[in-house]
């Protein structure tokens, strides 16, 4: 990939400057903020992915908790918690809240590592799968990869 991001010069996208030039003022995050730019460019795609996962995990957890919470209270609560973290992360990135995004990314990474390990070490504690079970194996390991991509992205867009 050539010239995709611009972690050290300007906050607006330069990878397609000929098109972005006219629309740049309307993007609304050209100046200020402690993490400007983290919700633009590739960050937009991250926001979309996190939002889809928040929707997927959240609605699944909502149905499970409403219908059969007693079957696996821990697993279903964890799924709901994971959904909240995904949503928090999407909102933090979209609004340029860098610290919040970092914290949410950290929680997500810790969650998938801890729950992933526990679900393999003690399967009986997790009779029903969560988003984080088996390091996200039920979702082609995307839950494992997402926080890593998020942290990488946040470090790329660090402003001096």
């Amino acid at each position: 990939m050539s010239g995709t991001t611009n972690g050290h010069d300007t906050p607006v996208n330069t990878d397609s400057g000929h098109e972005a030039g006219a629309a740049a003022p309307s993007s609304g995050n050209g100046h200020g903020g402690d993490g400007h730019g983290i919700g633009s460019g590739p960050g937009r795609v991250l926001v979309a992915v996190y939002a889809v996962f928040a929707l997927a995990a959240g609605s699944r957890a909502a149905v499970q908790i409403a219908r059969q919470f007693d079957e696996a209270p821990l697993a279903y609560s964890l799924s709901a918690f994971a959904a909240v973290v995904y949503l928090l992360l999407a909102v933090a990135l979209a609004m340029g809240r860098r610290t919040l995004a970092l914290v949410a990314c950290g929680i997500e990474l810790a969650g998938v590592l801890i729950v992933g390990t526990l679900s393999l070490a003690d399967p009986e504690a997790f009779p029903k799968a969560t988003v984080w079970s088996g390091f996200g194996s039920g979702y082609v390991f995307i839950p494992m990869v997402l926080p890593l991509i998020g942290l990488y992205w946040l470090s790329r867009r660090r402003q001096p």
Binding site: D15, A23, V52
Partner: peptide, 26 residues
């Protein structure tokens, strides 16, 4: 029903190659 309009809104706001990438996610 919710995803396509939200994706369109979110993708159009990004006037670079990453706009269509948002649509790809949807």
């Amino acid at each position: 029903v919710v995803i396509p309009p939200v994706a369109a809104f979110w993708g159009v706001g990004e006037r670079s190659r990453w706009g269509p990438a948002v649509i790809a996610v949807a």
